[in-house]
């Protein structure tokens, strides 16, 4: 079953993702403009794009565990997912800036309001990843440095989860579930046997 999926996916080029990626954001905006997103479309658009950003972060982080434990090989799509994540984050941020707060007290909000500080930091950390998401940068930086740089997605994911946790009112499960998924996906990467090996090498 997994083998069949892997074989089928071999024929799908990664650029297909860039073709379909704008569809959700266009749909969300179309629905917002045609009064199909309820009573407060601006807030709804902002929220939906924020959720899409989180889903994309989770999708990107799921690729390695899926390969290791399910044998599903989606590696060639990972960079496209990352780039698309950046654009959804950007769309989320622009919606907040233009439709919601309308550029009022933006700097004060970023400095004063924790959930905005955290969200903004996640976006800023994402910029170098977006900028270096091309073969030329990979060649220039070298595979090791490039890979190290792109591990920034781990703190970005944590900041994204925290952003959601900090913004809800009262005790709510939804952001906790997202945070648990992200922490779980990051925990998959901690190989327990690494720790003793690291200690031993220090002793020598």
């Amino acid at each position: 079953m997994v083998d069949q999926i892997n074989i089928a996916l071999r024929r799908v080029p990664a650029w297909v993702l860039y073709l379909v990626a704008p569809l959700p954001v266009l749909t969300i905006y179309y629905l917002g403009l045609t009064d199909a997103l309820g009573i407060d479309p601006a807030k709804r658009i902002e929220h939906e794009l924020g959720l899409w950003s989180l889903w994309l972060v989770i999708a990107g982080l799921a690729i390695t565990p899926l390969r290791r434990w399910a044998g599903l090989n989606l590696l060639k799509f990972r960079r496209a997912i990352g780039v698309i994540t950046f654009f959804y984050l950007l769309a989320h941020l622009l919606t907040w800036l233009v439709l919601d707060v309308q550029f009022q007290n933006v700097w004060a909000d970023i400095v004063k309001r924790w959930y905005i500080t955290v969200g903004m930091l996640a976006f800023v950390l994402m910029i170098p990843l977006a900028v270096t998401s091309n073969d030329l940068s990979l060649k220039r930086l070298g595979a090791g440095t490039w890979r190290g740089l792109h591990k920034l997605i781990y703190p970005i994911a944590v900041l994204g989860a925290l952003h959601f946790l900090l913004l809800v009112k009262g005790f709510q499960w939804e952001p906790i579930v997202y945070a648990a998924i992200i922490v779980g996906l990051l925990a998959c990467r901690v190989r327990l046997n690494r720790l003793p090996r690291f200690r031993m090498s220090r002793q020598t």
């Binding site: 009573i39 407060d40 009022q104 007290n105 909000d109 309001r113 924790w114 900090l166 913004l167």
Partner: peptide, 12 residues
Amino acid sequence: PRWSQATERRIG
């Protein structure tokens, strides 16, 4: 603490 109360968005 988490947002400004200086302005508001009029629903609708």
